[in-house]
Amino acid sequence: MKFAVITFPGSNCDYDCYRAVKDHLKCPVEYIWHREHSLNDCDCVILPGGFSYGDYLRTGAIARFSPIMRQVIDFADKGGPVIGICNGFQILLESGLLPGAMLVNRSLQFICKTVHLKAENNKLPFTNKLTKNQLIKVPIAHKEGNYYADQKTVRELEENGRVVFRYCDSSGKADDTANPNGSVNNIAGITNQQGNVLGMMPHPERALEQLLGSSDGVLIFDSIKNFLGAK
């Protein structure tokens, strides 16, 4: 059971994702440089957060052209689990693995804080250790996390349980005051039709230890291990 953490020039959460797999899951993991042409038989791909290509042009817009993305798309098309976190989510949107786009936060500012999320789909490789609608605390850190899609797409996401995480308050209410960035329907994370690609703005790799404020991200990493182990 081997994990790949893809490193683009400008990725900066690659290290945190690497440590999450290595220290928390205690599974083999390797960095794969964006110019590589192989995923080296990894069983799960993590697209980490950061500022690939300095966010120049548009977040994720240049990274999608990196050579390794062909392999990532192939891997996803064959049903392999792919998780994109923050900038990784943005790259998934740009590369067409997930629908929609990211706008600048409605405050027009970068926001770093811990938020509550409601896990609405617990049937995925990434969420099977969560109970349905479980509330978890996970940090966000982004300037472009204001998820947007046209009405038809949003309806499709909503009706098919493809909204995986939603921003909410401590009681689980997903209203506008609990929305940190203005994303449509408080969407924090979505999956593709097959359920093997997850994009989420919050950083589960930052929520693995009580020492750092929350350990709820454990549930997401443990879910992946559980899924791969059961396969």
Binding site: C13, Y15, D16, Q109, F110, I111, C112, A141, L208, L212
Partner: peptide, 10 residues
């Protein structure tokens, strides 16, 4: 400080 990423590198 909310505009600064204060958690990266965990």
């Amino acid at each position: 400080y909310q505009q600064y990423d204060h958690q990266v590198r965990t």
